[in-house]
């Protein structure tokens, strides 16, 4: 199996403070890895670092930045645009596969011409997943993807992730609630909480320099 993401001894900082350290994992094609941990430990920060939105404080991330599709709580959807327009835009930006199969996969064809502002929370989430499909990128990095979803929508989400894994994709998911993906590996970040006296091998922020 091809390794898509390899993380070595990673430390990330949030608000100038070292949040998690010593994190290491590999993610291969067809695999899902779930990051667990209490609120505020730095799951979001870790995901943003893997997605390349912020530099790691320490350690290495080996991944093709053009392989990663990142999705946070906000989906980057414009309420004034229709479902299809939103998807066509992100498809054009990422240069991924066509929009229609993604609409079909997420059961959105009937809603294609509806403005995104008129969708329910579950429909919006499905549109967010369809957006991930049209990026055409193999590694999904998802931050709390099932928050505010009912049981049916969670099952739909799990099905979408499984289909993605079956197509040799991979997923890195941060959550503190059950996703209905029992086959996924779980990494508990609680064990990687940064020590209060952070080692200043390479001070990365004001707090580490002056702490």
């Amino acid at each position: 199996m091809a390794v898509l993401v390899r993380v070595h001894d990673l430390a990330v900082s949030r608000g100038g403070r070292r949040a998690i350290e010593g994190v290491g994992f590999t993610l291969s094609a067809g695999e899902a890895l779930i990051l667990r941990g209490p609120n505020g430990i730095g799951k979001t920060t870790l995901l943003r670092t893997v997605a390349g939105l912020q530099p790691p404080t320490q350690g290495r991330i080996e991944a093709d930045p053009d392989a990663i599709a990142y999705a946070a709580h906000a989906d980057g959807l414009k309420g004034a645009l229709s479902v299809a327009e939103n998807l066509r835009f992100w498809r054009a930006v990422f240069g991924g596969p066509p929009v229609e199969p993604a609409l079909a996969a997420m059961n959105l064809i009937a809603l294609a011409e509806r403005p995104a502002a008129m969708l329910s929370a579950g429909q919006k989430r499905r549109l967010g997943l369809a957006r991930l499909l049209v990026t055409g990128r193999p590694v999904w990095v998802l931050d709390e993807p099932t928050v505010s979803l009912d049981a049916g929508s969670v099952a739909l989400f799990a099905g979408a992730v499984r289909a993605h894994l079956a197509a040799q994709g991979a997923a890195l998911i941060a959550t503190h609630i059950d996703l209905g993906l029992p086959e996924a590996r779980v990494l508990d970040l609680g064990a990687h909480k940064a020590a209060a006296t952070a080692p200043a091998r390479a001070p990365a922020s004001f707090d580490e320099v002056f702490g």
Binding site: A196, T197, F206, D207, F210, G211
Partner: peptide
């Protein structure tokens, strides 16, 4: 400024410990 940063950093560390 350095002392102010240092107090802020120490305070943050104390709150986390």
């Amino acid at each position: 400024e350095i002392r102010r940063r240092r107090t802020a950093a120490l305070l943050a560390r104390e709150m986390r410990a």
